[in-house]
Every structure is written in C-alpha cells, then in structure tokens.
Amino acid sequence: MQVLVLNSGSSSLKFQLFTMPEETIVCSGVVERIGFTDARFKFNSELLNVETETKVLTHKAALKLVSKHLLNKKEGVLKSAEDIKIVGHRVVHGGMYFNDTVQITADVKEKIKSLSSLAPLHNPANLEGIMVAETIFPSAKQVAVFDTAFLQSIPEKAYKYAIPNEFLTKHNIRMYGFHGTSHKYVSEQANSFLNKKESKIITIHLGNGCSMTAVKNGKSVDHSMGFSPLEGLIMGTRSGTIDPSVIFHLKDSLGYSMKQINALLNKESGMLGLTGYSDLRDIELKASEGNAECKLALQMNAYRIKKYIGSYATILNGLDAIVFTAGIGENSSLIRKLVCDDLDFLDITLDEAKNNLRSKNLRAINSDASKVKILVVPTNEELEIAKQSVRLFVN
C-alpha cells in the first residue's frame, strides 16, 4: 500500500511516500519558503535526487510540484495518482474534538478551520494541504493525525487553568499541548531501548518550535505548551512563557494593538528577538565568535529547559531517561551540554565524547555513572503518521 504523508507548515511542505506496512521510504523531500520566488525544493528517491530553487507561491503549487516528480514518466515512483491509497496529514490543533486519528470529512475540515485561531501559524496551512491533496489525489483516503491527540491523557489537574470554571466548560479554554506525534514516537522508541514495562521519561522536542512532555508508562502526564503553541520553552521566534501582565502593559502603556502583540510574541520574539537570528546554527556560530547576546540567549534557552526537567522529575517521582529530539535536539551537541551541565543532583551526567559524536541512530550519550539515561532519538513524525493512518483502516 502506498501512503503519502504531508506535513504542511506556514511556509513549507514536507512529504514522505511509504510502502506500508513494510515502512519502506519510497521518496521524501520538502518545499521551503512557499510564497517566495526563490523557494527551495528537495526530492530524494532511488532514481531521482533534486535540489533546486524555484518559484512556489502557494501550497497548491508546492503539492503540484511534488506530484509532478512523483509521477515523472522516466524517474518517478508512481504510475498514476490512483496508486496513492492514503494521504496522511499532520494537523497541529485538534482541540477537544479529536483524541485520535480520523478520516477527513467535511465536518472534520470545518472543525480544523474553527480551531485556526488557536494555532494561526499551522492549522490554516494544514487545512490548505488537505484541500489541495483532495484535488490531486481524489481517490485516496484522506486522514488527519493531530499533534494534540497524544496529549489527551494529561489529567485535568494539569491541563486546567486557575480561571473561572465556565471558561473550560463553555469555551474549552485549557492546556492542549503540541508536537504530540513526535513525543509519542520518540517516547515509544525510548521505552523499547530501556526495555522496561514501567518507565518515567521526559521527551524534549527542540526545533524552531520547542516543547517537553512528561511521559509515564507510555502516557503523557504533563506538557510545556498550553492553549496555543506559544507557552513554554524559548523558541525560534516565539517567546515561550511570559507574565500575562506584559501583554496588558504593551497595550495600555505602550500603545500596541492586540494584532501587533500577537505578531510580537509569535513571530518576533524567542531567539530571534534576543539575537536577531532564529536559526540556532547562526546563533551558535556568533556565540563562538564572542557575540554576548547570542551567548546569553543560549544560556537562557538551556536554563528554561532545565526548569522543566526539574519540574517533571518531581511530577514523575523519579526519572529513567531524558530524550532529545527534532532538529536542534538531534544535532546541537552544545545545547545538549548546556542543558545537562550541573544536573548531578538528578543523577544526570553527560559523556562529552559521546555527545560530540554525530549519528542518525538512536544513541545514549550519558556517562557510565549516570543513573538516568540521556538519549538522542531521531524523530520520525511522518512514519508515525503513516502508521496511524494505516491502522485506522486495518483495524
């Protein structure tokens, strides 16, 4: 069975084509900088490797570009669009509507649209990816896999805010959390590595968006993001947790509109606001050259992560492993070192030689003396989406 997985971001489209249930990757790639004349397109298969800049102004154009290469007569991997049996879509926010994977219907699309205000950078792009895929692959079953689903097991004492009850009961205002597909995948990989029936794990997803989850016996029990993806850790352009009074001060004393504040906290803050750069590779380079703002931003980033590790170790009443994943978590030995320094009290000690080694495989980077495992687990949200999509129809 051919399963195409689409991960539509605000200005990007990641894709992987799998043969299932073998979990074989047929091809993969990404379209970045959608909306620009110099968009970047990558397509990798056994017969064809493309990396180029081209004009891609819409998600529809991006998916058409992908399908053109999938169906290339000489070097394509499909004979026709009908070969795709399932298209699995990553959808960031499922609200209280969805606690599992679902086949997409008109009602599902309407609910995804209604939640766009809660994830304005993601849900609209996710929905557009769905609508475009329906036109290009009309015979395929369209499936939505929600980032919030894995986090539905978090108990009420953790997800409820200390505001009047009616805001939860009437307006569904609560902590939802995000990156659930990634946290689910890497926590399962970590559990398999630990080979324990019962486990206490903290998963740390560090990319442009960052989040952490406390996972007990395979179930999430707490999470760093909240009602929206804005809360929690310091991210590429998002502020993370901030005193709500700052918003009132920006509006009432400094004259900012609510639209400006929303843009400030979501798109102009985080590492970008602290350093002028949103890409951690640039920040690490500038820090190594002596840039004081970049040095401080890295320390702040790691400090925030440490606070959550301490908090979650308490909630879990112990700890078997911490897991680093996603682009920064998998590739930045510096961030991992800054996070793990001075955590001896929790029996977390890093082996710097292991930490500095590069690998695409799951690996332990803790010292032999460390009672808590420090794992680097490459995430594979696309494979998890493919598995959940197939499971929907097989079971």
Results as ranks from 00 to 15, higher is better:
H223C: 13
S192T: 12
A214K: 09
V108T: 13
D320I: 10
Y159V: 11
Q152V: 03
I247P: 00
A158T: 04
N126P: 00
Q299C: 04
K387S: 03
K295M: 14
A119Q: 06
E293T: 10
N123Y: 04
K113Y: 02
T379F: 02
S28L: 09
H93F: 06
S10A: 11
D351W: 06
L264M: 15
G329H: 08
D243Q: 06
L250M: 15
A353K: 15
E231Q: 14
P229F: 07
G94W: 05
K295G: 09
E75I: 07
V26M: 09
Q388W: 04
Y312W: 12
E293D: 15
K373S: 12
D320G: 04
I261M: 12
P138F: 10
S11L: 10
I348D: 08
V246P: 01
A140S: 14
S245L: 14
A313D: 00
I261H: 07
L280K: 03
K64R: 10
F43N: 08
C294H: 08
I234G: 01
D279P: 02
H223D: 01
N266Y: 14
A353Y: 12
N361T: 06
A386M: 07
G94V: 07
K259E: 14
S11D: 01
S28H: 07
I201M: 10
N380M: 03
E82H: 14
L343M: 15
F345H: 12
R358Q: 15
G255W: 06
N262H: 13
N266D: 02
K79D: 09
I136Q: 08
P244N: 11
A140D: 01
A158K: 14
